[in-house]
Design a protein around this nucleic acid. Sequence first.
DNA 1: ACTTTGACTTGCA
DNA 2: ATGCAAGCCAAAG
Length: 106
Amino acid sequence: MDLYERIYDIVRAIPAGKVTTYGHIAEAIGSRGGARLVGWALNAVALSDRVDIPCHRVVNRLGELSGRMHFETPFVMRERLEAENVGFRGEAVDLSRHLWIPPMAG
DNA sequence: ACTTTGACTTGCA
DNA sequence: ATGCAAGCCAAAG
């Protein structure tokens, strides 16, 4: 299984109303520090037809919507999260309430 | 083939 | 707490 598909599997597993971070996903696929790879994979998703992957539920370690630029508009990401009752703390997601840790692969 | 960049995170000073 | 450097894997020039 490619790392990309592992990433996609994990992102798809994020429950509505929850978010996770690039770092946690990277760890889940057995690639600690490979957070950038996750971003790259999501970038591929963004310009792909994949809609099954809720990439809006992936934020950086501070809960900031660093990937909002890659959506149709920079507001879509925030709006989608708020639509799922995700609470915000300033410009970042309240991770203390909405952080979801992905299960380890294997 | 080598260098630079990217929706990132961590370590050391 | 702030600032610089390293590490991860893949894609573009």
